[in-house]
Nucleic acid binder design. Sequence first.
RNA 1: GCGCCUGUGGCGAAAUUGGUAGACGCGCUAGACUUAGGAUCUAGUAACGCAAGUUGUGUAGGUUCGAGUCCUAUCAGGCGCACCA
Length: 923
Amino acid sequence: MEYNFNEIEKKWQQYWKENNVYKVDIDDSKPKFYVLDMFPYPSGAGLHVGHPLGYIASDIYARYKRHKGFNVLHPMGYDAYGLPAEQYAIQTGQHPEVTTNENIARYREQLDKIGFSFDWDREVRTCEPGYYKWTQWAFLQMFKSYYNTALDKARPITELEEYFKKNGSEGCNAHTNAKVEFTADEWNAMTDAEKSQMLMNFRIAYLGNTMVNWCPELGTVLANDEVSEGLSIRGGHPVEQKVMRQWCLRVSAYAGRLLCDLDTIEWSESIKETQKNWIGYSEGAEMLFPIVGSDEQLLIFTTRADTIFGVTFMVLAPESEYVDQVVTPEQREAVDAYLNEVKHKTERERLIEKKVSGVFSGSYAVNPVTGKEIPIYISDYVLAGYGTGAIMAVPAHDSRDYAFAKHFDLPIIPLIEGADISEESFDAKDGIMMNSSNERLQLNGLQVKDAIAKTKEYIEEAGIGKVKVNYRLRDAIFSRQRYWGEPFPIYYDEDGQPQPLDESELPLQLPEVDKFLPTETGEPPLGRAKNWVASNGRPLELNTMPGFAGSSAYYLRYMDPHNDEALVSKKADEYWRQVDLYVGGTEHATGHLIYSRFWNKFLYDYGYVCESEPFLKLVNQGMIQGRSNFVYRIKNTKKFVSFNLKKDYDVTPIHVDIKLVYDDVLNIDDFKAWRPEFADAEFVLEDGKYICGWAIEKMSKSMFNVVNPDDIVERYGADTLRLNEMFLGPIEQSKPWDIHGISGVSKFLKRLWGLFFDGDTMQLVDEKPSAAALKSIHTLIKKVSQDIEVFSYNTSVAAFMICSNELKEMKCKSKSVYRDFIVLLAPFAPHIAEELWHQLGEQGTVCNAKWPEWNEEYLKESMVKYTVLFNGKPRFNIEVPDGTPGDEVQKIALTHEGAARWLDGKQPKKVIVVPNKIVNVVV
RNA sequence: GCGCCUGUGGCGAAAUUGGUAGACGCGCUAGACUUAGGAUCUAGUAACGCAAGUUGUGUAGGUUCGAGUCCUAUCAGGCGCACCA
């Protein structure tokens, strides 16, 4: 019988579907396990062979856990809102919903061919009202909450209103970026609109005037993680800094917890490190510097409190609120000119120029420790958004201050012994302090570390500042001027204040529009919708939510996807709790993986979920790159020259579709037929062949290097595809797709099939396996069981090959051995395993078969290694047959050629043979 | 600049965590069988050498009876953050 994978795979995929083999429900009799993939954005290009890499890895783990008796939740869905569908809609007029659904159908078809064990009854799509109702619901909860820094959790905003009524802002523990102070009387005297505006400073979801990343090309604002080096991640368009009134999420309130809780989860060090960098913890002090001739004081943040004696000037960010207070009339003109200049530079221009610029404000501040008066400058090297937007400048020990001081010819006072500051500043936090003592504070002679601690202590005592932690993490900008996203459940009242819709009005459905472009007056596309008003007739918000909104809690929805009453029921949440294993790429490190953690923590604060972290273990699969092929056209001709001859010509490399190439040899006829302009191409061949060049590049349509998994499944079968993807190398590593290796995997499955059949008849029998066969299969059981736990799938595949070769060699015909083999193989290659399982006469599905346990007895080596120690020090090793009695081992050890050297002619006083393979000789 | 990760045959990679480096697969070489192929099977394949042998895990040191593995320095590549005080 032939191994007809196409037939077998179709047959069993059908069987699994009809028998709901992968359907899962709450079952208190079994331990649960939740295995999740990052759900895909269904793009028009379909899946390529890179996409399933992570899905296969997680599917193996999910199947393995089922064999081990766990109740496994393994769902899949679609992150359906996104820019590409909308861009396509703008170009074609096609509704994004239509293209999205078409793409989803295509994805589903492709996924189904690979034989995943998803429970499709739990599928979610972020663009469906039944799903986004809960995205909107969560937003409403955030709108109605503030962050209590004393309790360190979210609380209802009504509690804060009560507090303001009684106490004003004095002593309130609400997280805010605004500097607002008011008394209870002042609060009570406010109008509703004023109160509403004031509360915006505290809500977790708030409408705020913030500096945003505005992308004119895309016509929308972008979050920080959607921008890199002044360009949008998607499309690479320039991004400007601009103050706009936008919805934001107070992610920064959770910075401390997002950082600390990284220690409680099992993620790779590198991705934890990325998040740590992104959150950007820094411990320092805030200090007050009085302004000469004013009651105002400058509040600055520093991590180098120890350098207080070296402060020779102060610097304010151009956007700082202090600017107006410190500018003197004489300097007004110069300052305004500078501010204007800065305003017209984009972030990118500022970064590229790296030119020292700034202006003197005319005012002076007083160093609170030395009492010296120092000038206050304004410069764009100080950022408004970090710390307090004002710094104390210590040119001797900060390179930026140093450059500024040199440029404006300001004094530089060295504070660390032996530091050479003639050419550059000494930034290291290391050395002995000097020039740093007076009657108030004595730091001379201290190590920097101790000086920092002592200064902090002093400034708290003296009441000139306090110890403070700062984070780099900013609030997330949460609105987009786009159509294809979740509408905000917000309307605007008579005063123009945003108000929440009642929860009973959810979901607020995305309205129809005639075009997917902004309105003529520049409003977002929802401005085109007719009757876009709340049930009370008031106008609704025109922005929509960003892409990460829908993906922030989808893992919770899978637990209870059809629930109309709640995001997830208490029962489902308490059973499934959190994702035990999450598999996906690293590209979401500072986006989705931060937002989800934030979102989950917010829900946790209110007890909507019972775990404070959403993803317990995270595995990042690498990217699969494409291998592109090139032909080389001789410039200004229709001639193409073969790879190894191209050095003799002036050539242009051109991407050629990899479908026209086999083993880097071009199929010339196919090439001519590929494009009309190549129809009359001529070729300079080598050895009668045209050899193409190649390069490893990202897999993409434009490079003609996309490999479609459907083609691989068609030609080699899904099981071979699965095994090959796992065999390519470690799952975390990025690697090029390599079709060459697939023949090895393909051969393995064919040979395995061959072991079962002699012609058309099953040749396996019920017989007692030999010791060698037992050893072989139990080695495999142990290896595969251990490998799966640590995601070392590539070595598992190797182990399967070794074992099958051994069984073949020893002509093992025992059914029981092969039965175990098949169960082990089932997570990796489920179709062939299922077929062979039935061929063996087993009942049910192999997916539910019990995972075999290995027996150490069968694994015993024929030779055992002993380490021989002399007086406790290991000296050499000996090998003896397994089961050799102790005194025999001792004799062999002492007659070993190495023994004489350590015995040095003496007789051993005592020899101890330890069962854990150590021989200790006491001389 | 700060932080993290990775360096092993022609290639993808293994290495029981300090104990025979290169498992397994690709490729290559030779042979067998053939319906002559991009099929299947058998043997070989780190380098140098006819051999015994010698040298080999980016480079240079160190610890150890023993180092791909641990320590120090250095080089190369990848990733993250970056005028963050």
